[in-house]
Write a protein that binds this DNA or RNA. Structure first.
Lengths: 191, 191
DNA sequence: TTACAAGACTAATGATAGTAGTCTTTGCGT
DNA sequence: ACGCAAAGACTACTATCATTAGTCTTGTAA
């Protein structure tokens, strides 16, 4: 090879994540990102095809980090299915609160081009579905999983978008909602 | 009053909604909107302060339409709390599917400036909370409502963002998830 | 030592939000 | 009737960005 690279793809993505978290996606200009990396904007095109691809990279990494958070939650939890599912829910919510801008970007990406790869998403939730199967039974595990993910994701997004502003303890409300859902899902198993 | 107006605020918002639904928000240029209205872009500034304010107007109208959909759902439903809550859930989901782009914009608006007015949001969900109170009991009605809204919103958003792609009947899964949640919430009342 | 390829830069283009200033229409007071 | 004030629209311009084209630089391998 030749000319000494002054940056690389992982650094670019990580820096973009940092800027997005600090200023919001809509404020992310390629010039600012480049300057943060000590280069000029056009040089970024050596590493990413365009801005959309750059954002897709950020989304992909963020999703991967979310599933790492799942693993951490699981290793610090009791072994029964109920505890594990609760640990995942709270881990998910904590992750979203720790990096709200990147979380929203990753899970509400508007265009197809910047969405995360569906196949890897599937691979990453399979272990979660296995836990859900112990609660809801195998037959309803996919439906119950979908509801669970919807509940977590929707609650967190409403929080992050300041749409749950009537006071009260949101952490407690989240916990109650998740436990209620799991209680309902558990009834599916005994039918 | 003088010069004959060639458009007005409601028309501008409605047209913006139509274009957003057709092409997506990111494709909405003020020039296209103006041309659709038979005027030039700068003339729009007689009616809206800037693009952000325009989008906030769209968001406000969309939210109002969502609550009109709630009303329709309620009038076509049986009178018991369970039926009414189910009707609202399905009405909400149908609304989101009927205008996915505007729905996403309205409920995941990134910046504070284009978010819907929180106070009116509260006023609009109060009747829903009253129904939830009959299911979960008064004490837990706010928490249970938050979980319910989160579940609906999150499920729908995952659907719209193509993140529930593993087949199966999503309508049936949604119904099952909502019923499970309500069953769990009902247990709060008997504690 | 020389060629070449990777990596970065400057300069330019095109889209688009927003601003300044001007022209046109029409209702109202004289 | 007449003319003026103000609403509404337009043209022309600016600033910001993404993106492209073409050029210069530097390190490695022959």
């Amino acid at each position: 090879m030749a000319y000494p690279a002054q940056t690389d793809y992982p650094t670019i993505i990580a820096t973009a994540q940092r800027l997005i978290e600090r200023d919001g996606v809509e404020q992310l200009a390629l010039a600012s990102l480049a300057s943060e990396l000590g280069i000029k904007a056009p040089s970024l095109y050596r590493y990413v095809a365009n801005k959309t691809a750059l954002l897709r990279g950020v989304v992909t990494v963020t999703i991967r980090q979310l599933f790492v958070a799942y693993d951490h939650a699981l290793t610090n939890s009791a072994a029964d299915a109920q505890s594990q599912m609760l640990a995942i829910c709270h881990g998910h919510r904590q992750f979203a609160h720790a990096q709200p801008k990147n979380y929203s970007l990753a899970l509400t990406a508007a265009s197809d081009e910047q969405r995360a790869d569906p196949a890897s998403l599937v691979a990453m939730v399979l272990p979660v579905q296995a836990i859900m199967a112990q609660i809801s039974g195998q037959d309803h595990s996919l439906a119950a999983l979908r509801g669970m993910l919807g509940l977590i994701h929707g609650f967190v997004l409403l929080e992050l978008n300041q749409q749950l502003q009537r006071g009260g303890d949101l952490s407690a409300d989240f916990d109650l909602a998740v436990r209620s859902y799991l209680a309902g899902a558990a009834q599916l198993n005994t039918d």
